[in-house]
Amino acid sequence: MPLKRPTGEALAKEIAARTGYVFKDLRLLETALTHSSAVKAASNNERLEFLGDRVLGLVVADMLLKQFPDAREGEIAPRFNALVDARTCSMIGTEMELGKYMRADSALTSGARRAGGNYLADAVEALIAAIYVDGGIDSARAFVLRYWEPLSLRAVDKPVNPKGELQEWIAKSSDGRPVYVIESREGPDHQPVFTVSVQVNGYSPMTGSGSSRRAAEEAAAAAFLLREGVWTAEKVPV
């Protein structure tokens, strides 16, 4: 039997151990850790996630400019993109064990479907926003630096961008561009699965699936690049 999810002061204490921040408004903390799929929840973390994404970007950009005062924008951008990527946020959410504090549909938190992994990334961004709202930018910065600063010196690789690379590859031989078409959308609203095809003149289309239209488009583009030999299997994102 799984352990009962802590609430109230007990939740605040455990989250404080992971963030270094003690919440004054416990309702705000609860909202940050409530996914839109949670049954009977009065509110969810979607708005906080929106804000947290912006706070994270500001803090990480400021951190990198101070770390690399002589670097050009083109040198800093790949580090920034890697650090604010959903996969990095999801990894940090896993490190913090946020999954056991979330209010969400059991199918989402069970990890039964790969598409559900992004809920942890969303929760991390919502938590950043909640700390910002509850304690101000300095508190949010302290939390971000706690987890992102150790990663910043390692985040040197340009994030994989299949759609961008496909567009560049096509541009070398023609003035065409890939066209993405939604073939289907399945599953419940809180856990959809999109299937998208990418169509390029002179080539057979390729399809890909993902938990959002963007993810499905990227999967289709990656499959196209792999089929045409532009990418090797090692390049395809896991």
Rank of each mutant, 00 (worst) to 15 (best):
G57P: 07
S37N: 06
V55S: 08
L29F: 08
L29G: 06
H35Q: 00
L28T: 04
G57S: 14
S37I: 10
L58I: 11
R54D: 01
D25T: 10
R27A: 13
R27Y: 07
L26H: 11
K40I: 02
E49G: 01
S37R: 07
S43F: 12
L58W: 10
E30G: 09
A32F: 09
D53Y: 13
L33W: 04
G57V: 11
K40L: 12
L33H: 02
L56W: 05
D53H: 13
L51R: 14
S36G: 00
A32V: 12
E49P: 00
R47M: 11
V60A: 08
T31N: 06
L26P: 03
L58N: 11
T31C: 12
A42Y: 07
R27K: 15
L28V: 07
G52E: 01
L51I: 15
A38M: 01
L28Y: 01
A41N: 11
H35Y: 05
E46A: 15
S36I: 05
G52A: 01
G52V: 02
D25H: 11
S36Q: 03
V55F: 06
H35W: 00
H35V: 04
E30P: 03
R47N: 11
N45Y: 00
N44D: 15
A32Y: 09
L28F: 02
L56N: 09
L28W: 02
S43A: 14
R54L: 09
V39W: 14
N45R: 05
L56K: 14
F50K: 10
V55D: 07
L48K: 09
H35A: 07
A38E: 08
K40M: 06
A61C: 04
L28E: 02
